[in-house]
Computed example of a mutant assay.
Amino acid sequence: MQEIQYLTFLLSNELFGLGILYIKEIIEFESVTHVPMMPEYIPGVINLRGNVVPVIDLNTRFYKKKTETNRKTCIIITEIKLEKETIDVGLLVDAVNEVVDIPENQIEEAPSFGSKIRLDFIQGIGKLENQFVIILKMNQILDLSEIQTIQETSSQVN
Rank of each mutant, 00 (worst) to 15 (best):
K24E: 15
K24F: 10
E25T: 15
E25M: 08
E25Y: 07
I26G: 00
I26M: 09
E28A: 15
S31E: 13
V32H: 09
T33P: 01
H34G: 04
H34A: 10
P36M: 09
M38Y: 09
P43L: 04
G44V: 03
N47T: 07
L48T: 02
L48M: 06
R49S: 06
N51F: 09
V53R: 08
V53P: 01
P54R: 01
P54M: 07
V55Q: 00
V55G: 02
I56P: 01
D57Q: 08
L58N: 03
R61K: 12
Y63L: 14
Y63E: 13
Y63V: 12
K64N: 15
K65D: 01
T67S: 04
T67C: 00
E68A: 13
N70K: 13
R71F: 15
C74D: 10
C74Y: 01
C74M: 13
I75G: 11
I77C: 02
T78V: 07
T78G: 03
T78P: 03
T78H: 04
T78Y: 02
E79T: 13
E79F: 04
E79H: 11
I80Q: 01
K81G: 10
L82D: 12
L82H: 00
E83I: 07
T86L: 12
T86M: 06
D88L: 08
V89S: 08
G90I: 00
L91E: 01
L91K: 07
L92W: 00
V93P: 00
D94F: 03
A95Q: 15
V96T: 06
N97W: 05
N97T: 04
E98T: 12
V99M: 10
D101C: 11
P103N: 08
P103R: 06
N105D: 15
N105Y: 11
Q106G: 11
Q106C: 09
I107W: 12
I107Y: 08
A110S: 15
A110M: 11
P111G: 13
S112F: 05
S112M: 12
S112Y: 08
F113C: 09
G114R: 12
G114F: 11
G114W: 04
K116E: 01
I117L: 14
I117Q: 01
L119V: 11
D120V: 05
I122T: 08
Q123C: 10
I125A: 04
I125C: 06
G126K: 05
G126N: 03
L128R: 07
E129L: 09
F132W: 13
F132A: 10
I135S: 02
L136K: 03
K137E: 01
M138C: 08
M138L: 15
N139E: 11
N139Y: 07
N139A: 10
N139S: 12
Q140A: 15
I141K: 00
I141V: 02
L142F: 06
L142Q: 01
D143W: 02
L144I: 11
E146C: 05
I147S: 01
I147Q: 03
Q148W: 15
T149E: 14
T149A: 13
T149K: 11
I150Y: 00
I150V: 12
I150H: 06
